[in-house]
Amino acid sequence: MVTEHQQWLAQLEKKSIEKQEQFMNDIASKLRRPRQRQAPTQPFRGAPDFWTEMEWDEEKRIQAFTDNFVSVGAHIARVKNMEEVSQFIANKSHELSARYIIRQNEQALKDLGLEEQLPEVQISVWNSQADENWKARAAEADIGVVMADYATAYTGSVTVLSSPEKGRSVSLLPTVLIIIIPVDQLYTRLGETLDRFDEVGRENLPAGIHFISGPSRSSDIENDLTIGVHGPGIVYGLIMG
Rank of each mutant, 00 (worst) to 15 (best):
K14Y: 07
K60M: 08
F69L: 07
M24I: 12
Q63W: 04
V72D: 01
Q22F: 03
E21C: 09
Q63I: 07
I62S: 00
P48W: 08
K14S: 12
L31C: 10
Q63G: 04
E13T: 11
K30I: 04
Q22N: 07
D49I: 07
P34I: 02
D67Y: 04
I76V: 10
V72S: 04
M24K: 10
I27E: 03
E59Q: 15
A74C: 06
V70T: 15
A39D: 05
T66I: 13
K19Y: 11
M24S: 12
D49Q: 13
R33D: 02
F44D: 09
Q63T: 14
K60W: 04
V70A: 12
Q63C: 09
I62D: 00
R33E: 06
M24L: 14
F69Y: 11
F65E: 06
R33Y: 05
R37W: 06
K30Y: 03
D26H: 05
E58S: 09
E59L: 11
S71E: 02
Q38L: 15
K19D: 15
D67H: 08
F65A: 04
P40N: 13
P34G: 02
F23Y: 05
G73S: 10
W51M: 05
D26Y: 03
E13D: 14
R35C: 07
K30Q: 05
N25W: 03
S29A: 12
S16E: 08
Q38N: 15
K14C: 05
N68Q: 13
I27P: 04
G73M: 09
G73E: 04
F50Q: 15
Q20K: 12
N68T: 05
L31K: 09
S71W: 00
I27V: 06
E53K: 15
S71C: 06
V72W: 01
P43L: 15
S29T: 06
W51K: 14
I62W: 00
E21D: 13
P40D: 10
N25L: 11
A28C: 01
S71Q: 07
D67T: 08
P34W: 00
I76M: 05
P43N: 14
A39W: 10
A64N: 11
E21W: 09
T66A: 08
N25P: 02
F65K: 03
K30L: 08
A47R: 09
L31H: 10
S16M: 08
P48M: 11
T41F: 10
P34R: 01
N68P: 03
D57K: 10
I76D: 00
F69C: 02
N25Y: 12
I27A: 05
D26M: 06
E55R: 15
G46Y: 12
T52H: 13
Q38E: 15
R37G: 05
S71G: 01
Q38D: 13
L31D: 07
E13W: 01
V72A: 01
F44Y: 14
A74E: 02
P43M: 14
S29W: 06
I17S: 14
V72T: 08
D67E: 10
E13M: 03
I27T: 07
G73I: 04
P34H: 03
P48Q: 09
W56V: 03
R32G: 07
M54I: 12
W56L: 15
D57T: 09
K30R: 06
F44E: 14
F44H: 15
I27Q: 04
W51S: 07
W51P: 00
V70Y: 00
D57V: 13
R61T: 04
Q20L: 09
G73N: 08
V70P: 00
Q20N: 09
T41A: 14
I76F: 02
E58G: 07
S29M: 05
T41K: 15
